[in-house]
Design a protein around this nucleic acid. Structure first.
Lengths: 340, 340
DNA sequence: GTCCTTATTGGGAGCGCTCCCAATTTCCAG
DNA sequence: CTGGAAATTGGGAGCGCTCCCAATAAGGAC
């Protein structure tokens, strides 16, 4: 332990600290874990020995002895797409990891591939992690429920599309779409169409529902709908289709910023002025929203808070807290910029 | 082990498999680890018992017994900024995690905060991870070298600015800037300025060096330089400053797509046509590059490959491979779009 | 069948920690 | 000082796995 050379890492053990401090291993363990029942004198001696040896508890030994892992798995279901683009994922990751770290647990990242699903399920079900935050944006993904059924504590980020016992956290997509559409009406628009996202995803469904509800409230016909995947190209094509079918449109609500960028592109190529001739609203408030021309009015979804809340929900469950909400909906917020 | 209820996760142990298969624990261990010296008969019996019990080895027990951790830490140095924006980080993460998973190791994510540096260093130096991939874009960050000095196997993503023994991987920022500036010259531009990134980062420095070298080759004056942080606003302000000082500019190389977006914004507000009056090149090929108007000519940096190569370099070192390169430079690639 | 070599098998011990309960010490009241 | 209660301490055992070496079994040559 003295004079460490690069490559030599003989970590101090609890027994070594005990020897140096002149106490038993139990006393050292009590000090390390802040347990009561240790005299001030012993505590001081142990603390000195710990500082002198730079002792750090061995997580493997600890996990084995306690039969706990203090590990949270972040499972990213990656079925070959990057639906909302990477900005979403990065924010979620920051939120989850900060919350897990603050709870003194380690976070293991697991990218889930279709081929490895079976193995991943077995690994998680075997109890080698305390629980799993699962990020799955396709609402029909069976993984969260399978894990829950196997006894894994799970919190899901993204609303599932089927009845489930898995607790989940999502943004208020419906409320955000509602606010966006109302805003368009408040600016005087009467023919408000929508480029809706994929209908196998809760975000796609809920944002369309929000738009429909607002249109119902306003007494407007809710017939100007085109569905699109979450890409720029699909957004441009959908905008073209909308205009062909509804040439009198004066606004469009796009279910993601990416779609809105595509719509802007098409409108520009047609010489349609935004927002003078036709207003555009997106959804996400991703980095794109302030880099387009005009800058996008959009609905902000709190991606980092999504991560934090999902991790919190799991940790609370693991801590045995009672009466936890089966689902958490985080507020979205309309951000008005130049496109409306 | 039979009839598991949710919440009950009594994982099968090696001893249980041994009992069911009618062999010793050593035989089970040999089968699980694919060691030689097991009869086909015993191997079959063990495999059946494993399938029946859904046995998964306990990583903590394994780590403790072998004194290995099979864990790679991904340390993200987060000194309060998101320099290249989140797209960079997400791509790196995918690359690192895929490589680590393919090597049958688990990846632990650690966000490094200034306040927790001491504790993080101790944890990593205590030998509880096999090694660390450190993502640090500020070239003066002392963490990688301190970890290496403490005996931690480290591979650094991002070129350091001081002499170091830490192996690192970076993109060829200089070469990319060179190619970008040459491309501008090849399109007939003669007054080529640059919006340079922060000079406490290798990316900022190397991209400016590449621009200078190209200007030197071309025999043009390399005096139209303005420095900026990597934000859209700073890019717009830098473009304004460049035009004020050099009103005859006919091109600008921006050291990041974010800066280029800011430049485009300013140019539009001044009625400068891009690329007719003034051509613009960015760097990154982030999602922004195809969503701006006009779409950006930019230098693609292989973010996912950056992650993969850094993880590879660390794993190769851990595997005891000889003659490993002290640094790896990944090629960048000019992607021509509508802004030039 | 005997002997020798090779292959296979099994059980003890250790990895570093926690926890339990018996042993010891300390403190306070009478 | 004595006795009892409370606080502190220590050491054995176990967590689930790997590894080592002795024991056993199998195979082949003579």
């Amino acid at each position: 332990m003295s004079g460490l050379e690069p490559g030599e890492r003989d970590a101090a053990t609890l027994e070594e600290v005990a020897r140096i401090a002149g106490v038993s291993r139990s006393t050292v363990s009590r000090v390390v874990n802040n347990s009561p029942g240790v005299s001030a004198r012993a505590r001081a001696a142990v603390s000195e020995a710990i500082a002198a040896t730079r002792y750090v508890p061995n997580p493997a030994a600890r996990n084995l002895a306690t039969r706990r892992t203090d590990t949270i798995a972040l499972v990213v279901s990656e079925d070959g797409e990057r639906v909302f683009g990477d900005p979403f994922f990065a924010g979620v990751l920051r939120g989850v990891s900060a919350t897990v770290a603050a709870a003194d647990r380690q976070m293991v990242l697991v990218m889930s591939h279709g081929a490895d699903r079976e193995r991943l399920e077995q690994y998680l079900a075997a109890g080698h992690v305390d629980g799993a935050v699962v990020v799955s944006l396709h609402g029909m993904d069976p993984l969260p429920q399978r894990l829950t059924d196997a006894g894994v504590a799970v919190a899901l980020l993204g609303r599932p599309l089927t009845a489930t016992t898995v607790p989940y956290v999502d943004a208020d997509n419906l409320g955000g779409a509602l606010a966006a559409t109302r805003h368009l009406a408040a600016t005087g628009r009467r023919r408000i169409g929508t480029i809706a996202g994929p209908q196998d995803m809760a975000a796609g469904i809920d944002r369309l529902l929000g738009w429909r509800r607002a249109m119902g409230e306003l007494g407007h016909r809710a017939d100007a709908v085109v569905h699109a995947d979450f890409t720029v190209e699909a957004g441009a094509a959908a905008m073209a289709e909308l205009l062909a079918a509804h040439p009198d449109l004066d606004a469009v609500f796009a279910a993601a910023d990416l779609l809105a960028v595509g719509a802007l592109r098409h409108l520009r190529s047609r010489g349609v002025r935004v927002p003078d001739d036709l207003a555009v609203v997106g959804f996400d408030d991703s980095v794109l929203a302030t880099t387009t021309n005009p800058t996008l009015t959009t609905v902000r979804q709190p991606v980092e808070e999504l991560g934090r809340s999902t991790a919190w929900r799991l940790l609370a469950q693991l801590a045995g807290e009672r009466h936890l909400p089966p689902s958490v909906l985080l507020p979205t917020e309309l951000v008005v910029r130049d496109s409306t």
